[in-house]
Computed example of a mutant assay.
Amino acid sequence: MAPAAPARLRSPFSRRHLLTTGVLGLAAAAALGTVAPASAAVLDSGDLDTGESAQWTEEFLTRPETREGFVADAMDDWQLANAKFIIAVVKGHELGEEVAVIALITAIVEAWLYNYEPAVDADSGGLFQQRPSMGWGSYDEVRNKKLALDAFLGLGEHSQAPGLLQVAPDVASWEPGAAAQSVQASAHPERYAEQVGAAREIWDRFAADVEPFTA
């Protein structure tokens, strides 16, 4: 999954796909307007406190891909937990706001801050829609939040794909959307930067109260 020569500090980029299978919780879906019902499972592995796995299955509603912004005030419990988890792990690696923003915009774009159990795009899964066939780890590893985030950051020993700190070691000098694209090699690179405002709002709200997670 080696990306083409990445660009720095250019005009905003954004996401690969904002959930072609747009899976939302029932309450959020009803509020946003939805179409055909579908069923999906969301896997939440790597709990902040215990590291234990838990799985929930719920009926979801599917909507077409949209370009609307992610609204921090509309996050459900799963999205909130995943946002805080990303911040906690980034802090645990002694990385700062810019890296957290890059990870958050990627998880928003790729999975709307849900940790997907079913394959959404080919064999992709998890918060970052990583593909086992592209070297990101096994089926279970790309769906484990800690392992998936470490792989995205370039700190996961289980992953053979280049992560953020490998493709952008000078990440502080990169525009966040371009940095995300350097890892994800998206067909829609312009979409990541659309979520930078939401990611910074999430960081500003929660970072001070989230303890580093190092397990």
Rank of each mutant, 00 (worst) to 15 (best):
F213D: 00
F85N: 02
L61T: 03
A180Y: 00
F152W: 04
F60W: 08
A111R: 01
L24F: 13
I105V: 15
G22W: 02
R200Y: 03
F206G: 04
A172W: 12
G46H: 02
D204W: 06
T20M: 10
A103V: 00
G135C: 11
Q79K: 08
E190I: 04
W112Q: 08
A41S: 13
L153M: 13
Y192D: 01
E59V: 11
Q55E: 11
K146S: 07
G163L: 03
M1A: 13
A172E: 15
P132T: 11
A28Y: 03
T66I: 13
P162C: 10
F128C: 01
L18A: 10
E59F: 11
A31K: 14
L18F: 11
A215R: 15
L26P: 03
G33F: 09
P37T: 14
W112N: 09
F70D: 00
E58A: 14
A2R: 15
A179S: 03
L24N: 03
Y116R: 05
I86V: 15
G135T: 05
A7S: 14
P37C: 07
G197V: 13
N82A: 09
L149D: 02
E201Q: 15
A28E: 12
E65L: 14
Y116W: 11
A107K: 01
P37M: 10
E59M: 10
D209P: 01
R143E: 09
I105K: 02
V99K: 00
